[in-house]
Design a binder for these strands. Structure first.
Lengths: 342, 342
DNA sequence: CTTTAGCACTCTAATACCGAGAGTGCTAAA
DNA sequence: TTTAGCACTCTCGGTATTAGAGTGCTAAAG
């Protein structure tokens, strides 16, 4: 579709714009990148690229700026053209920073979001491993002040969850003991999701026999294994709004980003998709408040299956190369950690 | 120091500025508030007030704007001059909104920050009840994958905490059982802080006898009862940066606010102070990045002693009256909840 | 046919200038 | 002590001007 030379010019323009945030003119391209072409030729090429929708000029006498489509080209073109050496150096430095997260078993995933933001000056996000996707190590139920039950759930992935359930009637510690023993003996090692399903099935069976006590117990079990829709971790908003990009739309954008619901859905969607980092550029974003932003997301896995997502949110003119490097490294890191770290 | 009339004028000016965010001129004061004085007289008074440091004019031909000192006067003057009726209505409406927090035992304090922000368009903060300040209901230790210990701590205030401790050597489930039984029998009902202290004392005693096993156990106990410095809850940043006030200093301010360390210290300080809401206005703020912001904070109590803080962060020209009403109501609400809710 | 030099053209950003409006401070009278 | 009157100051919005950057087009060169 584009000939080689045109591609190179487009690539150079996007790269240069990402670095400088200033519309890039024909003269600049000839100077900085040595195509051995005159500005006039470059201008012709740029005019073509504009016609094809890869570039626009903010106004007649400015240079050109990439469109979302331009960025898309850049990102797809990227893998073949990474400046490998420098990037490798950065990567190893970044990896050592990740290593320090291993200290805190519970904090790896939250820490990943933090690290991403700190190293990019964009926003780092991570969706924690959903308890439903994990396997039961043990669950404990305690009676608390008569009418409450304290639940502690421990998974084989090193996640601890707790909750307090308010009951209608008091349940004796002995009964609780028996319920949790039952759960642990029957279900240790199984996926939380599966257990919940089986419990529901059992429940409906028991109901047929009208055994209220057992039904109650089942209900407690089910409750004990249900947790509120996972939050996501997000760091770097203050840095981000300090970026010169959005001085106007700040409010709108800040709100979109803080809307965790949207975010959660987005991250979950990406979580399904296999492979490396996905890049969503500006208008490609399904959430319309986030046009003008780009996201680089990658799933991390647990036992071979994708289990959560980490990523970066930044302006469309973010440093994709760097971002992709970081996000992929982070996802790999968490995957490794989950499989052998704990 | 100021005569009655001067005070009234100052009060009127501050109030009016808070409402409109525009420098207020002499003519406006005579119109809006019926002092039966001519603009010229008001001008004289205003000139005096400026000399005394309560007002400044942004430039020669603008109206006056309160200084921090002006706000301080206003806040101190406020209690005697609340427009009681309207405020009462607001208060009852607000209280019902708070009521809905009772649903979720764990979320009251977090919810308080949310509610504060939602009802003020400023930033709501709350510092959770520190586990150290609570009393032990029970603690449980579980062996996890050999070299780890999972701890669950349940306090009489309804707080559950958990953590995972990495050990050098494996500790048998039986030993853990004995340790937790010991803790529960010996210390149930005691303050976590006290327990920690006593454990340290015991430890040094034991050390003298070189009993490694017991020392180890003590150490586990102590670890189990130690938790990372509490986070604080904070909501409303996106709304806040949308306010017209700080279009320039956004970055700086956003960073100051996100710096949880500073915040935690600040909140803890206020937590010590008895009585109703404390108001920190602009330059009164010990944290210099937060000059230009005001905070309204009030401690909530637990068993008679102050246990945490809730509050609002806003621009110096915030609606103090409303803010104080809300913060005090929220603090009272949490205090009540802790004493009888659970 | 492609590339290039030259040049006129367009648009922005910076600067200065002007006039209207707002609000003041001061003076002199009530 | 208060007030009316008035000159003064400063901001804000609009307009004009200019310098500079970068383009598109044309016509010549490779």
């Amino acid at each position: 579709m584009l000939n080689k030379r045109t591609e190179q010019v487009l690539f150079a323009i996007v790269q240069s714009y990402i670095a400088s945030h200033e519309p890039v003119g024909s003269r600049f391209v000839t100077k900085k990148y040595s195509f051995n072409l005159s500005p006039a030729t470059i201008r012709n090429i740029m005019a073509d690229l504009e016609e094809l929708g890869f570039l626009i000029q903010p106004h007649t006498s400015a240079g050109r700026v990439p469109t979302d489509r331009g960025y898309r080209f850049y990102v797809d073109y990227l893998p073949e053209h990474m400046a490998a050496v420098e990037e490798k150096n950065f990567l190893t430095a970044y990896m050592t920073r990740l290593e320090s997260l291993k200290e805190d078993l519970n904090g790896v995933i939250e820490g990943a979001a933090k690290t991403l933001s700190e190293n990019s000056s964009y926003i780092g996000v991570s969706a924690p491993l959903k308890p439903e996707k994990t396997t039961l190590n043990r669950v404990e139920l305690f009676s608390y002040k008569g009418r409450h039950i304290a639940v502690m759930l421990l998974t084989n992935e090193g996640i601890i969850k707790h909750k307090l359930i308010r009951m209608e009637q008091e349940v004796s510690p002995r009964t609780l003991r028996r319920i949790s023993d039952y759960l642990n003996q029957e279900f240790a090692g199984y996926g939380i999701d599966d257990i919940r399903l089986r419990l529901v099935r059992e429940m409906s069976k028991e109901k047929a026999f009208c055994d209220i006590l057992i039904t109650k117990a089942m209900e407690i079990c089910r409750e004990a294994l249900t947790f509120p829709a996972g939050d996501i971790y997000m760091y770097g908003l203050p840095e981000f709004i300090g970026l010169p990009d959005f001085s106007d739309r700040i409010k709108e954008i800040a709100r979109a980003i803080e809307d965790k619901h949207l975010m959660v859905r987005l991250l979950e969607k990406v979580c399904q998709e296999p492979g490396g980092a996905s890049v969503l550029i500006g208008s490609e974003n399904p959430v319309k408040e986030m046009r003008g932003l780009s996201m680089v997301l990658a799933p991390y896995g647990q036992g071979g299956r994708p289990a959560g997502t980490v990523g970066i949110i930044g302006p469309t003119r973010m440093d994709y190369n760097r971002a992709i490097t970081m996000v992929e490294a982070t996802a790999r890191f968490i995957t490794d950690f989950l499989s052998d770290g704990a």
